[in-house]
Design a protein around this nucleic acid. Sequence first.
RNA 1: GGCCCCGUAGUUCAAUGGAUAGAAUAGAAGUUUCCUAAACUUUAGAUCCAAGUUCGAUUCUUGGCGGGGCCA
Length: 594
Amino acid sequence: MIETRLESHLKNSFLALLQDLGHAEFPELSFQKTRKEFDGELTLVTFPLTKLFGKGPEQVGELLGEAILAKDKSIDSFNVIKGFLNIKMKNSFWAEELNFMVNTENFGHGSPNSLPLMMVEYSSPNTNKPLHLGHLRNNFLGWSIAEILKARGHKVKKVQIINDRGIHICKSMQAWLKDGKEQSPESMGVKGDKLVGYFYVQFDKAYKQEISELIAAGKSEDEAKEEAPSMIDARQLLLQWEAGEKEVQSLWAKMNSWVYDGFENTYTRMGVDFDKNYYESETYLLGRDMVMKGVKNGVFYQKEDGSVWVDLEPHGMDQKILLRSDGTAVYMTQDIGTAIMRFEENPGLASQIYTVGNEQDYHFKVLFLTLGILGYEWAKDCYHLSYGMVDLPTGKMKSREGTVVDADDLMEEMVKTAGVKTEELGKLEGMSEHERTDLFEMIGLGALKYFLLKVDPKKRMLFDPEESIDLQGNTAPFIQYSHARIKSILSRFEGKLGALKTDLNLHDSERNLILALSFFPQVIDEAANKYDPSSIANYTYDLVRTFNQLYQQVPILKESEDGLIQMRIHLIQTTAGVIERGMRLLGIQVPDRM
RNA sequence: GGCCCCGUAGUUCAAUGGAUAGAAUAGAAGUUUCCUAAACUUUAGAUCCAAGUUCGAUUCUUGGCGGGGCCA
């Protein structure tokens, strides 16, 4: 756990002080940021120390305050309010702090590749449906976590598992064979994933039609579902695929490649990437072997019908199926295979993180337990990064009811809106078409990513299309705008930037900003620990507000004293760097002008 | 029926067990001869209910109520 340099400094001072006072043992010292309505930067909570001193919290505060002030020369003053000892550092301490940040390359980041390998899985789409809003949250989240882990110093592999086999693909294939044979993404001028998705919908329509006809003809609902010709065709295709029939396999490969081209296009615009793709068609057999091995080793059991089960009752859960009676794989089977493959391929893999929605909580609990039962030590290093669903104001997103928000459409919409609003403000004089396009992309996608990432991943969230294109307040454009402001000042600065003077008088807003900056390393560390990009988002937002307050209160280039100008240039340059790196961890770019 | 997650201003979100529960947005009022007003300042407004643990509970425990999910 990383702490700020200020906290380390004061902790050491207090530890030495308590020793001086003859205390060898004492409760953990509890520090917190001083609330802004009080004077000071860091606060020691004295309640836990009252027993040690046999005095009330306020007296303990006074006593320690006097003593620490005498002992630690970098402390300027202190004040005690109830059980809180607020400590204010001298200007020289903060100037030194700024100096440290200025001279630290990539301040906030750990040294690259110094920590163990982590694997982050996200996206994991089905190949029969285009990506939608839910995938956007998933992708942004997973990608961002991977970047945050990298920033802390981990080696990271980003992966996805593509659900490329099974009955759902065969449904799209069936519909294409039936009435789409001459259609391709090129001939139709549509993205491949959209075309395949279209056929999937066509299948569903025909299937439903057949069912109602069969029911009208006197069949029961279950019978109708079994006997519908479309479904019989699709099942047949699946069997042929599993038997390795050439024509079916090549159609399958062709339609999947359409989908991958479409996805690639969407991923590129989203700004996410992968180091490796896994395909279920390549892992499900391994999973099946591993399950059968478990039967042989007696950790799983087989029922009379041939199905394989794991007994999780000792873990307070029930029996769980691992292989169907006909020997076909269930999701669990493939996931077992994939996990084993990944750990075997990557010796030294410290952790495997699955970015998957919280409706799968139970599934992953079972998966990790089952891997443990199979004897894999690393099962405990698997982590399900479970995130909440994205709701629409109209209710739940359901592809069947047509209430999905398509990822491509949404991105397009956001960028368009960003363009319109930016043009309206009329600050782009002299900017080329090309630069404008880039800028609108940056703003539109930034707003979207920020909107989805600023919320605690675990929580279910509401996506209101109206509000999400808002560009004011706690949004990416607000942060991007402030960055552009800083860059604008920096570009006007004509002097030569020298070494920082440490004997300057600091304005309150300057101290606040330096204090806020000093938290950056800790924020990254915490975000990595909790797998939570929202803490980066909230931190950056706070930082930017602090900067804006300074901007409003003190002149930078118009300041008369050269030493102060220099210091402020250093300060805002450092701020711009932290904003840029913070937003980069969310996948959001910041412009120099907007 | 069993298990899991969530309940904070009108709305959308914050708050390692700590101070007078922060923001944004919507509402009311102000700031532009001055480095970008997508900004800043002021104002009003909230912890679902009830017990318990604690010096101290939005946070932990138990029981309700409400919302969502998973497993049959």
